[in-house]
Write a protein that binds this DNA or RNA. Structure first.
Lengths: 144, 144
DNA sequence: CTACATCCTCTAGCGACTAGAGGAGCAAGC
DNA sequence: GCTTGCTCCTCTAGTCGCTAGAGGATGTAG
């Protein structure tokens, strides 16, 4: 109703979050239920767009929805300590760094393999060995 | 039957892949159907364990099952032409390098976030602010 | 007033597992 | 031999974070 209200399509365009995804976020309570127009259409304002952009950015950084929920409630209480937000970000950073290290090792092996192939020998395919390396620590699958 | 045969539980322990996940991998054809004991139990040997460890590691690195399927063909056909293996390896290499680049960008942003957060008030929390930053470019979710 | 875009709700599907029901097999102690 | 208790079997259904589609209502431009 206000000049600052957008339909869901416009909100999607402005926030970079797809229409069905916005509805999904509302459904799981990540986004408050939007107000509705006469004809039952969802209406969004600036604040909603900001929240959507926040969610999108956090998802791009690989944060899980539950983590984002926490970050959002933290955002809503600006006088609280920042320590919780810091912890979430740090945990994510560690995951990402682990993954980079693993991928670097894999890249080296693939490079080595391609080089060997160029010189005509196929023989010992160490890519498999690298990946099959059982000395690697057992950990849960790193998310994204 | 051979001395080198393991039950699924033992295979899980040794490979770091959970029992139901092993069965799932067999179901989707990522792992060849295991031979069975008298009492219909799956039996695994060394080669199977290697393959499982390989799959686990590749999944940790974020490869999709389909990519792993391709990667496994490298292992299964060591006599194949160099060109074919080379092509697969090169394609994977490009993928891996892209992924590393993407993760590096992610890490930098996380690092910046975390560094500037001196655990003060949420009001001035860089983590939250960074996520809320709408000047960020629209891009698809950073795949692993 | 018609055409067409956009919206609504609802259900089902995806990948890659994970959890649980309900039952069979097996190894060890009594 | 028998019971206890673990592992195994198959099967179906649930998880997360969406995505796709059906079938229908609403809004807007010519």
């Amino acid at each position: 109703m206000l000049k600052s209200d957008f339909a869901i399509g416009e909100a999607a365009r402005q926030s970079g979050v797809k229409v069905p995804t916005i509805r999904y976020y509302e459904q799981i309570g990540l986004l408050p239920a939007a107000s509705r127009s006469e004809g039952n259409r969802r209406l969004y304002d600036r604040r909603d767009l900001d929240r959507l952009a926040f969610i999108r950015h956090a998802r791009e950084l690989g944060f899980e929805v539950e983590a984002i929920r926490t970050l959002l409630t933290l955002q809503d209480s600006p006088d609280q300590s920042c320590a919780a937000a810091d912890a979430i970000a740090k945990a994510r950073l560690i995951e990402v760094e682990k993954r980079i290290a693993s991928l670097n090792a894999l890249r080296d092996e693939l490079l080595r393999m391609v080089k060997q192939c160029e010189s005509g020998r196929i023989g010992d395919c160490r890519v498999i060995e690298t990946l099959a390396d059982t000395t690697h620590a057992h950990g849960r699958l790193a998310e994204a």
